[in-house]
């Protein structure tokens, strides 16, 4: 396996993606909405307008009853906080966690879906397949090209989110409280594993379908939906403890290893050229 070739393919794809408005705009707009506007609304509206800002049918008392059904680690962490502090910490510190598992997929699924079938549609795939790279180097290069921006943007979004949550919540919290200990294994261990799972699936789909739209639909409808469910479950587990989060991450990495092995084993120029 020649990693310089894998990196060359990934770098080329990243350069191309940077020129593609269809890839760049979602990567810029999605984080702006989810990472800046949503948390600002959640933190600032109750401060400005009180409990009424939370909307009809929901009150801080109901939030307290919800918290009582949470694992002890969560209730203990929130025990000493005022109702509005609980609102901020519980929503932005716990309920937003699944979003960071889905975010890389939302931002980079265009790049992953485009990886093979997009090149085929632009008639550049043939010359790439004639290059002296192995089948494994080709598919790994494409996966790296999808995972890197997904993770890079996700981590950058996390940094912005931390800033927004701490700055906007400071008048109420009186301290820098985010991220909590559970976020570190989530961001550094679980999110990369889930990103690899989603991107590798999308790249494999891209190598097997006939049009970009087909690849994108299958990635969006299939991969993101399944991973959204998985993400929900994972986040539930993350309420428990750091070791549990690490264990869950390990399970996803094992899935990744299996998927990558399968992807490399089943990817073949012969099959791609048979359909060109």
């Amino acid at each position: 396996m020649n990693w310089s070739l894998i990196w060359a393919i990934a770098r080329k794809d990243l350069k191309e993606a940077a020129q593609n408005k269809a890839a760049v705009i979602p990567a810029a707009v999605v984080p702006l909405v989810l990472i800046v506007i949503f948390p600002l609304a959640i933190i600032l509206l109750p401060q400005a307008f009180g409990e009424a800002a939370l909307g009809s049918g929901f009150s801080l008392e109901e939030l307290q009853s919800l918290l009582q059904r949470m694992p002890p680690a969560v209730t203990q962490a929130l025990a000493a906080l005022s109702p509005l502090q609980v609102w901020i910490v519980f929503t932005t510190g716990y309920l937003f966690a699944p979003m960071f598992l889905i975010l890389p997929l939302m931002m980079s699924s265009i790049v992953a879906s485009d990886s093979f079938v997009g090149e085929k549609e632009r008639k550049t795939l043939e010359s790439l397949l004639y290059s002296p790279t192995s089948d494994a180097e080709l598919i790994l290069g494409k996966i790296v090209a999808s995972v890197l921006p997904a993770l890079g943007l996700c981590w950058a979004s996390f940094a912005v989110y931390s800033l927004v949550v701490n700055v906007a919540g400071f008048p109420l919290m009186g301290r820098v409280w985010f991220p909590t200990a559970l976020w570190w294994p989530l961001m550094l261990w679980v999110v990369p594993a889930v990103a690899v799972l989603g991107m590798a699936s999308a790249v494999i789909i891209s190598s097997r379908v006939s049009t970009f739209m087909e690849a994108y639909q299958m990635s969006a409808a299939g991969v993101i939906l399944v991973l959204a469910l998985v993400a929900g479950q994972i986040t539930g587990v993350l309420f428990l403890s750091v070791p549990v989060a690490m264990l869950v991450g390990l399970g996803v990495w094992a899935l990744d290893a299996g998927l990558l092995w399968l992807g490399v084993r089943t990817f073949s120029r012969n099959r791609l050229f048979s359909r060109l």
Partner: peptide, 30 residues
């Protein structure tokens, strides 16, 4: 493939990249 050069029927060049970037990419793969 390391010792052959192929010109395909369609030019098959990356239109979002420059000519220099296209050649650098190809040269790196070789």
């Amino acid at each position: 493939r390391r010792q052959t050069g192929v010109l395909t029927e369609t030019p098959s060049v990356y239109e979002r990249l420059s000519a220099r970037e296209n050649l650098r990419f190809s040269g790196t793969l070789y």
